[in-house]
Amino acid sequence: MLITSLLPLLSRYSLGLDLVAGPDGAVTMTIMPRKAEGSAHKPEGGEVRPISITATAAEIDAELAKGADGALGQLIATRKALADQIAEQRAAAETAKTAAKPKAKAEPAAPKTPVPDAKSSSPPAAPAPSAGEVASLW
């Protein structure tokens, strides 16, 4: 049952398993997806996040026996669907990026506006105050 339940993950990843016995007959099973050797698929951080189940051995066996309808099967299917969506979005972004490159090269560069000379851009000089007047800033 375990291998059959993990087949959807094994099609994309290499898997590591860790089993730890806990108190009162509890078992913690941790499944660690990793990039499969030789695979072109580059998994995202969320895809390779470990899956951990803590229950009794009988409960884990019963859950795995449910196959795709069990919690592990649903989690695997959800992760696969999300990974497929990420791949589709990357492909669409790459297509848009590739399509935008020729268009950007075809458009002529916008003409630059001439920069005004420093002499012409200075504000006009204020008239000098007469002998008895106080200079004003306004």
Rank of each mutant, 00 (worst) to 15 (best):
A77V: 05
G70V: 06
I76M: 05
S14E: 15
R79T: 07
A21E: 10
T4I: 14
A93G: 07
A92K: 11
A104M: 06
T30L: 06
A68W: 06
W138G: 10
I3R: 15
R34G: 08
A36K: 07
A77K: 05
I76D: 00
K103N: 06
G38A: 03
L6G: 05
L17V: 03
G70H: 01
A96K: 12
L64D: 02
A65K: 07
T56C: 01
A125S: 14
A55W: 00
I60H: 00
L72H: 01
R34I: 00
A71R: 15
T98P: 15
A109Q: 13
I3E: 15
T56D: 01
S121V: 12
A62T: 06
V48Q: 09
K66H: 09
T113V: 14
V20T: 09
L72Q: 01
A106G: 08
Q85Y: 13
E63G: 01
E63C: 00
P23Q: 10
G38C: 02
A131V: 10
P33L: 02
A83C: 02
D18H: 08
T30P: 03
L7Y: 11
D84G: 04
S52K: 12
R12E: 07
G22D: 05
K119Q: 13
A104Y: 00
S5Y: 13
G45W: 00
L82Y: 07
K101A: 15
E47P: 09
A36N: 02
L15S: 12
L19W: 03
K97S: 14
A81S: 14
T113I: 12
I3W: 15
E107F: 09
S39V: 00
